[in-house]
């Protein structure tokens, strides 16, 4: 098997995550989908690392994880405060951008 299949898998997971972001209304699920996309990226990075035979790809993946952790913390905090004020976790309810 060619390890490039990992890349195909990453692409597939990324696409599924992106579509999920677009389809789901629940902010938490949307957030999970974003995590899925990030993980797909990480898989791609790790695969690249293997392809090139150096560890830089893994370093990038590592940083991605750290940033994702920070993002999760802030994002979940936002969801919680959103839920507190609106009693709903639906992203469609926060449609104040409309005129």
């Amino acid at each position: 098997m060619n390890p490039v299949n990992y890349l195909y898998l990453a692409a597939l997971l990324f696409t599924i995550g992106a579509t999920g972001v677009l389809i789901r209304r629940n902010a938490i699920v949307v957030f999970m989908c974003i995590e899925l996309m990030l993980n797909a990226c990480n898989l791609a990075f790790v695969t690249f690392s293997r392809m090139h035979g150096n560890l830089d790809g893994q370093i990038i993946a590592f940083f991605t994880m750290v940033v994702a952790a920070a993002e999760v913390v802030v994002g979940l905090a936002i969801i919680v405060s959103l839920f507190r004020t609106r009693h709903s976790a639906s992203v469609d309810d926060a449609s104040l951008m409309k005129l």
Partner: peptide
């Protein structure tokens, strides 16, 4: 995610 972790290990990224 756990499966992805397995894939990381398989790709030699043990730490990750």
């Amino acid at each position: 995610m756990i499966i992805l972790a397995v894939f990381y290990l398989a790709n030699g990224a043990y730490f990750l």
